[in-house]
């Protein structure tokens, strides 16, 4: 399955696993939200944390592992410095998201769900961000960038890789720059 967007952070980092378990009153039904909270704190699911969670809830480690690998939003590896979420929904697909995806993979030597060798980017193609009016759309570190072309997307990421922060001009990167000759 594909990766999905970042788990939203709803709480301040808790004091370790005990805090997270307490937050849900130790309810095993809330195993997935607990794991989401761990990921929100650490950016991924550290193995030792999952072990501790398994012991604390008396839930087999294998079950936790099966959940961590079944749901696409869980990561078992630390993420890169910046997180790219590229929408691969139907509309974005119709408007060339797969070409943008290929370009990003080529440009930063990163596979879907993987992290670039320099640790700059973690690349997550997702199913649909529900922002179809902005298609093709990409979220970088929580910020939406719509109306992309291959060039706009790659340039934006290059700038982020170089400087860190996207500029206003690229953020509002408008469509229509070359929209009139879509295929």
């Amino acid at each position: 399955m594909r990766e999905t967007a970042e788990t939203p952070k709803l709480f301040a980092p808790a004091e370790g696993i005990a805090g997270i378990v307490d937050r849900y009153g130790g309810d095993r039904d809330m195993l997935i939200p607990m794991m989401q909270d761990i990921q929100a704190d650490f950016g991924y699911l550290p193995r030792e944390m999952l072990k501790e969670l398994s012991e604390s809830l008396c839930v087999p480690f294998s079950r936790i592992y099966s959940i961590a690998t079944f749901y696409a939003s869980f990561r078992l590896e630390p993420p890169g410095e910046h997180r790219i979420t590229l929408c691969m929904g139907t509309v974005c697909f119709l408007k060339g998201a797969d070409r943008i995806s290929r370009a990003i993979q080529r440009e930063f030597s990163v596979g879907p769900g993987g992290t670039s060798p320099d640790g700059k980017f973690t690349f997550c193609p997702v199913n649909c961000l529900g922002a179809c009016a902005l298609a093709p759309v990409m979220v970088v570190d929580g910020e939406y960038h719509g109306g992309l072309t291959v060039d706009l997307a790659v340039n934006l990421l290059r700038k982020i890789a170089d400087a860190g922060k996207p500029t206003e001009a690229t953020r509002n990167g408008k469509k229509k720059e070359r929209g009139s000759k879509k295929k």
Partner: peptide
């Protein structure tokens, strides 16, 4: 947590049970 199949009622309920 990013699984399309969880839109299906029984899968959704399994997910609510932490599975």
């Amino acid at each position: 947590s990013g699984a399309f199949v969880c839109g299906e009622s029984t899968a959704l309920m399994a997910s609510l049970e932490g599975r």
